[in-house]
Design a protein around this nucleic acid. Structure first.
Length: 706
DNA sequence: ATCCGCAAAA
């Protein structure tokens, strides 16, 4: 930056004119020049940003001397040297040359490009005082400059002052409002404007889409169709597709698809990607893929979108397949792509694969300041490898909030709540501002550690950090109190909290009631929960388990009947384990695995050893009315046990085993795996839908506090 | 001018 004044000096030096001295005074040279020779003056302190700009300086000097100010400004603007270009206006003032629309237009265009509001205002002021009467073209440029700089108040002032406005003025004004999200103001103008073109319509439509008002967008699109003067172009069609994708409305999307084919608008890459995305968002992933395959000019974003779509639907194999296709194509994945793949690894707990992606990122040299770094932290911590997460985290020079939060909640879930809280303190020291999700991690750490009072303190401190309590925070608080049996306080909070308790809160409370056998409150929580989501089988099952533990079998039976009547289907529990980069999935009583016989034989043997060690099956966890002796058998074939057993026989002795379950683990399995970890002398890590359990030598990191 | 992509918890 320090090179600038020198350039200016060089540029102006050969000209002798009274106005030049003025500029010299305005721009003092920031270091001593007394001993410098002419040659050293010509050498810039830092490399000049533009090729051969020395020659251009000479050129500009000559142009100014010849009073060819317009040309001088053009040269400077081409080099994006806005500040110097504006200085030329001063030279102009002191000459007999009158400013022209062309000069202002060039300058404004550069201001607009660089979002330079201050400079733009200077040009505007110059126009006002130079006596130049701007035409609608220049005024539109000014409008555009203000609206691109998001200075809508200035834009509107100008707009209202304009004696004549053309279509472009209206459109510029509208798109300015749309850009800053003032859709209602934009819409007001939209209704007022004398005539609308494709731009007006598509700006409004896509504005509504982007601000999450897809219904308004569609309504507008329908209105546009009724307007006989309007013929859709690729812009309106694209925004209409985005609208039907956002609603989502497959039927309308298909209509637009048909329209596109009929009118030959299908030659545009953007239209194609909007089309593919519309099908993807409307759930027709096959159709989306079909269009993707036929699409010309697929870019990183289209690849990333398509890959992410598969992951969204849980179709991991296809997503990864497409990712490897991408690696073989000429398009390179970027941070978004990698983040998407890593995120899929996190959710599926595919650590080996995640490691590979991490390795790939290291090889191509990813930007350590990018959000992609945070997804690596998240991946390791979600895969239960908090050590790797920490190692990677420590290698980031300036971790972002997401990385911090991933570490905090990672520790909280992995049975090291003290470490989580330590990281929170470190975060505060680092000067990063926590957000509401960080506090969810902190509060859940307190919950896992049983630090009720400390949790209450953190809860109170949330507002001191300039944040407001969210429903999530209240859910954490109730979880905290409920798990340690402080139900009175929990209920008081529920009755007093400023928003309606959500399903997470009631589910937490129900969990607390299960631990402490609080039947009355369990009933209240379950009722509230069933009102919110009557189809969730987990609620029925938990409530039934609470009654079963209390020996109230009539109630259990009643719940079972209600479930049948309402047609509630239990979400099938499944567990999986990654062995040699292959994922093996197990369901209850699953016999489909190729090594099923071995697994079951092994479990039988294990079962005997466990009983010798003092394990007693807890049949309360069996909801359905099977015969007593059969219950025990059902238990031993729960998916998590199958996956653990397979892990043991498929890996060398001593290898830690990592199993993942889509639901919460059942209490009996939890006890059983504690025994297994001791018998086979393995560390067993299980991630259920709630947290991690690390079993080692007969105990679990959750301290049975789940 | 228009389209599409990431992230922390429960």
């Amino acid at each position: 930056m320090r090179a600038r004044p020198i350039q200016l000096r060089n540029l102006l030096k050969p000209i002798s004119s009274p106005s030049l001295n003025r500029i010299h005074l305005q721009k003092p040279v920031p270091f001593s020049l007394s001993s410098s020779t002419q040659t050293s003056l010509n050498k810039p302190l830092i490399p000049k940003p533009f090729f051969k700009s020395d020659r251009y300086d000479g050129l500009v000097n000559r142009l100014c001397r010849d009073k060819k100010f317009k040309e001088a400004i053009d040269v400077l603007c081409q080099q994006k040297r806005l500040k110097e270009a504006i200085q030329i206006l001063d030279l102009l003032d002191h000459s007999s040359i009158r400013p022209s629309a062309a000069i202002y237009s060039t300058l404004l265009q550069l201001c607009l490009q660089q979002r330079a509001l201050e400079e733009g205002k200077r040009v505007h002021a110059h126009i006002k005082f130079s006596g130049f009467v701007p035409g609608v073209f220049i005024l539109n440029r000014l409008l555009d400059m203000y609206s691109k700089c998001e200075s809508l108040v200035d834009a509107r002032k100008l707009f209202d002052e304009m004696t004549q406005r053309d279509l472009c003025s209206w459109n510029t004004m509208i798109s300015g409002y749309v850009k800053i999200g003032e859709l209602d103001e934009a819409h007001k103008l939209f209704e007022e404007m004398p005539e609308k073109d494709n731009f007006s319509w598509s700006t409004m439509i896509s504005g509504y889409v982007r601000r999450d008002r897809p219904k308004d967008a569609l309504e507008l699109y329908r209105r546009m169709l009724r307007d006989e003067n309007m013929k859709c172009n690729k812009f309106t069609v694209s925004s209409a597709l985005a609208a039907s994708a956002a609603v989502p409305c497959l039927q309308l999307g298909k209509e637009i698809h048909g329209y596109i084919m009929r009118t030959g608008l299908d030659s545009d890459a953007v239209v194609w990607s909007a089309l593919s995305d519309m099908y993807g968002k409307c759930g027709s992933i096959e159709e989306a893929r079909h269009i993707f395959d036929k699409m010309l000019g697929r870019d990183v974003v289209s690849w990333t979108t398509m890959i992410g779509r598969y992951f969204e639907m849980g179709r991991r194999e296809e997503g990864l397949g497409l990712f490897s296709d991408m690696l073989r194509s000429e398009i390179r994945p970027n941070d978004f792509t990698l983040a998407g793949v890593l995120n899929a690894c996190s959710n599926q707990a595919a650590e080996d694969l995640g490691k590979q992606v991490h390795g790939y990122m290291t090889r191509i040299g990813f930007d350590p300041f990018s959000f992609a770094a945070s997804t690596v932290v998240h991946m390791y911590s979600k895969c239960g490898n908090i050590e790797s997460a920490k190692r990677f985290f420590k290698g980031i020079s300036q971790p972002d909030l997401v990385s911090w939060t991933s570490m905090i909640s990672g520790y909280a879930q992995n049975g090291q709540p003290e470490e989580a809280l330590r990281y929170f303190e470190l975060l505060l020291k680092s000067g990063t501002k926590p957000d509401h999700i960080t506090f969810v991690g902190v509060l859940s750490a307190c919950t896992h550690a049983g630090l009720v009072d400390k949790g209450l303190e953190y809860f109170r401190s949330i507002e001191e950090h300039g944040l407001t309590h969210t429903a999530d925070h209240y859910a954490c608080l109730v979880d905290l109190l409920g798990r340690s049996g402080r139900f009175e306080e929990a209920e008081e909070i529920i009755d007093k909290m400023p928003m309606k308790p959500d399903k997470f809160l009631w589910a937490s409370l129900l969990g607390g009631c299960r631990i402490h056998g609080n039947l009355r409150l369990a009933k209240r929580a379950a009722e509230a929960l069933l009102e919110i989501e009557p189809e969730n089988a987990a609620t029925y099952v938990t409530l039934a388990n609470i009654y079963a533990t209390a020996g109230m079998w009539d109630e259990v039976e009643k719940i079972r009947k209600t479930m049948d009547e309402r047609g509630v289907v239990k979400n099938p529990g499944s567990s999986w384990i990654e062995v040699k980069r292959q994922v093996h999935v197990f369901l209850v009583r699953d016999k489909s695995h190729p090594r099923s016989k071995e697994i079951h034989d092994f479990l039988d043997k294990l079962s005997m050893r466990m009983k010798e060690e003092g394990y007693v099956p807890d049949t309360n966890y069996v909801l359905h009315d099977v015969e007593e002796e059969q219950k025990e058998q059902n238990l031993s074939y729960h998916s998590e046990k199958l996956a653990v057993a397979f892990g043991i026989i498929a890996t060398p002795p001593g290898t830690p085993i990592k199993v993942f379950k889509n639901l919460r683990t059942c209490g009996d399995c939890h006890t059983a795996i504690k025994f297994i970890s001791k018998i086979v002398e393995r560390e067993i890590i299980m991630r259920d839908s709630n947290r991690f359990h690390r079993f080692k030598n007969g105990t679990c990191s959750c301290g049975d506090f789940w």
